[in-house]
């Protein structure tokens, strides 16, 4: 990441440099999203909803109408906007706590209702903004502030398999994928497909994004990248899990 690629046109220059910690994956995920919005030409009709947790720091990130909501509640707010005005492209952007813990019922029900929104969930294996507590996505043995001796699957289960669950409960037409901030081009492609799924009214679209949190992981740059690229994929398989049938060209 030595060279700085140009900012996506949908990014808001005035709010850059952004407020995420150095080495945080949010910036990369939001770059992929910005590029997707640019490519699809939907900046004028996109509504971006961000959750509580580090995702809230994106409340003024884009030159896109944005609603910063409550913890776990971005999905229903975006469902509400979309139902009221189906012409808008609604994106619910949240963390793993927001999607798989406090807001799980909303994510599950929006998915099974096949609401035509796009949910993007950043998986960095813990609650970052509140100081690094265990999340549904914390890896077995991983130390967090509430699992100081490492997550014990006997006591607290295994990492949530979000996209796999969403793929199971959504009808045909939905789009479900898991990407990673280490593969920006693939991630952007997933975002384009997810948004297209919404634009074409096919169904619910969902992307989990494997991301980094060196601040709470307490890792240096090399360790951070190795956790993301080597450890996380042991539990979280990257790729497209469900694509609309007619799309039929899953790759990468």
């Amino acid at each position: 990441m030595a060279e700085k690629p140009a900012m996506p046109a949908s990014w808001r220059v005035e709010s850059k440099p952004h407020k995420f910690c150095p080495g945080c994956g949010h910036g990369i995920a939001l770059r992929a999203l910005g590029q997707a919005i640019d490519e699809l030409g939907i900046q004028d009709r996109t509504v971006f909803g961000c959750d509580i947790g580090c995702s809230l720091l994106a409340w003024d990130f884009f030159n896109v109408d944005t609603i910063q909501t409550h913890h776990g509640r971005t999905t229903p707010v975006m469902v509400g906007v979309k139902r009221a005005n189906p012409d808008l492209i609604c994106i619910a952007y949240m963390g793993d706590g927001g999607g798989y813990a406090i807001g799980a019922q909303h994510l599950v029900n929006a998915a099974s209702r096949n609401d035509k929104i796009t949910a993007i969930l950043i998986n960095n294996t813990q609650y970052a903004m509140t100081g690094g507590q265990m999340a549904p996505t914390t890896m077995p043995g991983q130390k967090t502030e509430t699992t100081p001796y490492g997550r014990d699957p006997e006591l607290t289960g295994l990492p949530a398999q979000g996209p796999e669950m969403i793929a199971t409960i959504t009808p045909e037409g939905a789009y479900v994928a898991r990407g990673t901030v280490s593969k920006l081009r693939q991630l952007k492609k997933m975002m384009v497909r997810a948004l297209k799924c919404q634009m074409e009214g096919r169904g619910f679209s969902f992307i989990e994004v494997l991301s980094t949190c060196p601040t709470n992981w307490r890792t240096n740059a090399r360790e951070t990248w190795s956790f993301l690229e080597e450890k996380m994929p042991q539990y979280f398989q990257i790729g497209e899990i469900k694509i609309p049938v007619s799309e039929g060209d899953a790759d990468e």
Binding site: I67, T69, H70, R73, P76, V77, M78, V79, G80, V81, K82, R83, A84, N85, L88, H106
Partner: peptide, 10 residues
């Protein structure tokens, strides 16, 4: 929260 969304959609 969906009502909030509906209202914000105008």
């Amino acid at each position: 929260f969906t009502t909030v969304g509906g209202v914000m959609a105008g």
